[in-house]
Design a protein around this nucleic acid. Structure first.
Lengths: 340, 340
DNA sequence: TTGTACGCGTTATCAA
DNA sequence: TTGATAACGCGTACAA
């Protein structure tokens, strides 16, 4: 369709055998420099481009990495994708992107699609509903290199990249306590997610370590729908359990909190302080500016891609070990947790 | 590598000819229902997945759309990509993503890469440096369907999707004037970009239509580096030409403006009002909340994908006409342009 | 209704 | 140093 010239045609033009031309273009040692030059210049003149499918078919690899993310591209995932793209492009790899929209059925479908070799490797963050992992297991069993990031599944024996969720949540909660908070709420998404569990654990341990009591009513399980979350948070803020500090485990929940607070007569940070996992560059411009735990999203993307490309390039020398690699987040204190 | 079973092996297992199996799987009318069922169930049992490269090679199409964006995935591009992905997935298309990082050389390289048929079609927004378009011309000459969005090139005869840049800038500027501004600045990126030109025209016309004078010193050509922009804007705010209103033609320039204002003793909106093209969902949470012109990014993505898929699916019935399709932006008035 | 034979554009093996 | 040939896995014209 795209009307390119084939290797055979190029060879005919040069009065050479296709195999010779192929070798010349691939800089084989068996070909004389003179021929190489002649072939290359003619290839350029005729605008020859090797057909990627013929090559992939022949070599059984696609020079392509697939990225599967679980929701609309937010600040975090945008940075991760950027990080992967950067490294992929550098190494001549192509990037396929898929969105599961938090839907396990879609995740299954996409994963099955990738079973056919369209991508050489996969970078993935699972759905918040992903409980059954047989589809992921199958992928791994087939020998398709896969790494997880952020929303990982510990039960697939491969490399996972996360940030120090436990420590960050612990530090964040400690920070709230230090700022005088005594009733601290946790906003979280789904209980199945490993990161949610880790963050919750960090939150709980911080509270207990201070000899304070854990109040289950202060843990809010939010959804992926903004209006619903705003309502939920607002109700919490107006309840008898009203918190004076909030640890939000996702950027969007922090934004929902700003909205919820706006609807009440409460003031931030005097009545309630807020700290959140977030990757928005404009946390400092919010009113009040938001104290954040920022995940190293770009680095996570970079590392995922680097590792996979190493594995693909030198399969003998690199293994995707069953390990969790932690890249620390950064706590940036701003007005939303200011003591007054 | 991914150890899949081939059509031939599947056929052997079924004691049928490969062609029969192929036809059964493609639901050909020539095959009996009984055989079809037998084939399909065996295919599922053995986890057969057609090799996409063999198929692409044979059919000369990839079921893949490539998206080329010019910079890191910001809110606007994230939404566009989401919009494309949504439609692509719905129709069984795959999505490749490339980032030119505002670098013409990279743009050329990527475009040349796509000359080999790896993608059936391209959705693209050009670099701000894209002056020479021979590489794009070549792509189009080769018959590869391509549509542009946002940063378009009028000189390639195909369909382009944009928002009503002129009108939006015109309305935005009028709004500032109505709010009492008399010295209105324009923040823009690169003069080569069609959208920048349109927005500048809307800005100029609005000012002239009110019988006001155009001051060239009030048009600020910004870069892609935040610190530099902040400095530039700060200087403008402290100069003798200090504006009392600012129209920002990109989200990131609005954020830079917030920072610049913070560094001065000026107050927003009393001393200077700000309106900006922006797609961030949290414009309303800024301090002061930001009056925005929001581009229909998701729709733009949707429409690009829909059109291309129509063209790919029914090439006879759809043409990528040389036309510009405009999807209007939405003006949302908030505190940053409040009259006091 | 099913089977045979070929070609898509590469690369690799073997021969010259 | 170069050429002839086969093979990757699929779809399709033609034959049965």
């Amino acid at each position: 369709m795209a009307g390119g010239i084939s290797l055979k045609e190029l060879a005919a033009e040069l009065k050479l055998a296709p195999s010779t031309v192929s070798r010349a273009l691939n800089d084989s040692y068996e070909i004389s420099d003179a021929t190489k030059k002649r072939v290359i210049s003619m290839a350029e003149k005729l605008n020859y481009h090797a057909n990627p499918f013929a090559r992939s078919l022949r070599e059984n690899k696609s020079k392509t990495i697939a990225v599967i993310i679980p929701e609309r591209i937010n600040n975090f995932f945008a940075q991760v994708v950027d990080g992967i793209e950067e490294i992929a492009q550098e190494h001549g790899y192509h990037l396929l992107i898929y969105n599961t929209h938090e839907d396990l059925e879609r995740e299954r479908k996409i994963v099955n699609l990738l079973l056919n070799g369209r991508a050489d490797a996969i970078v993935m963050s699972v759905t918040s509903q992903t409980s059954d992992i047989s589809h992921l297991q199958k992928l791994h069993d087939r020998g398709l290199p896969i790494v997880f990031f952020d929303r990982i599944r510990a039960d697939i024996p491969t490399t996972k990249f996360i940030t120090n969720d436990y420590e960050s949540a612990f530090e964040g909660t400690k920070h709230l306590i230090k700022q005088g908070c005594t009733k601290i709420a946790l906003l979280t998404l789904g209980k199945d997610l490993s990161i949610s569990q880790e963050r919750q654990r960090g939150y709980s341990d911080a509270i207990l370590s201070e000899g304070m009591e854990l109040n289950p009513a202060l843990t809010l399980y939010c959804s992926h729908e903004e209006p619903h979350n705003v309502k939920l948070i607002q109700e919490l803020l107006l309840s008898s359990d009203r918190p004076d500090g909030i640890l939000s485990s996702a950027e969007k929940l922090a934004f929902a909190t700003y909205q919820a607070i706006k609807r009440t007569k409460l003031r931030m940070p005097s009545d309630v302080k807020l700290i959140s996992f977030a990757n928005s560059s404009i946390a400092g411009l919010l009113n009040p500016s938001l104290t954040t735990i920022t995940q190293p999203a770009l680095s996570i993307g970079n590392e995922c891609a680097k590792l996979l490309i190493k594995k693909l390039t030198k399969p003998k020398h690199y293994e995707l070990l069953d390990q969790v690699i932690t890249i620390p987040s950064q706590l940036t204190i701003r007005e939303s947790t200011l003591q007054e």
